[in-house]
């Protein structure tokens, strides 16, 4: 039994879009292939996402599952420095908050990555 793991970058297995509601940003994360969606459900937990963003958000993270769209929706509370017209940020409306999500590196067992044809990071030369 193989215990080795490989790195898989979220950018290579999902696409995202984000928007705002007050001081909260939403991040929709959509699996590029339906068979990769369960991996997102397992690995991309609310606590994982919260730890990834760290001091970029001041509140909690909620997660919702949309198996019908092979998508997860995250609500990042306190992500926009007050949001809307109050915020002094370049990205006051959270338009690109979800692109930061795409930096997440997942550790995936090598045999699972092979079975799912996951693109391994970094790509072989």
């Amino acid at each position: 039994m193989s215990t080795s793991s490989v790195k898989v970058r979220l950018l290579d297995i999902a696409h995202t879009r984000s928007g705002d509601k007050g001081d909260m940003a939403n991040c929709g994360v959509i699996a590029l292939r339906p068979e990769w969606y369960p991996l997102l459900v397992r690995e991309l937990t609310a606590s994982r996402v919260s730890a990834h963003y760290g001091d970029l958000i001041s509140g909690t993270v909620d997660r919702f599952e949309l198996p019908n769209l092979n998508a997860l929706n995250f609500l990042l509370h306190g992500a926009l420095d007050g949001g809307g017209t109050l915020s002094l940020k370049t990205d006051a409306q959270g338009k690109v908050v979800s692109t930061a999500m795409l930096r997440i590196m997942l550790d995936v067992p090598a045999d699972e990555a092979a079975a799912l044809h996951l693109p391994v990071y970094p790509a072989a030369a």
Binding site: R17, N26, I30, D62, F64, L69, A71, N73, L75
Partner: peptide
């Protein structure tokens, strides 16, 4: 499907 799905999740709260 991807272009429409990206819009579906835009500004989404609780999807239920």
């Amino acid at each position: 499907v991807p272009s429409v799905t990206e819009q579906l999740v835009y500004e989404m709260g609780d999807p239920h």
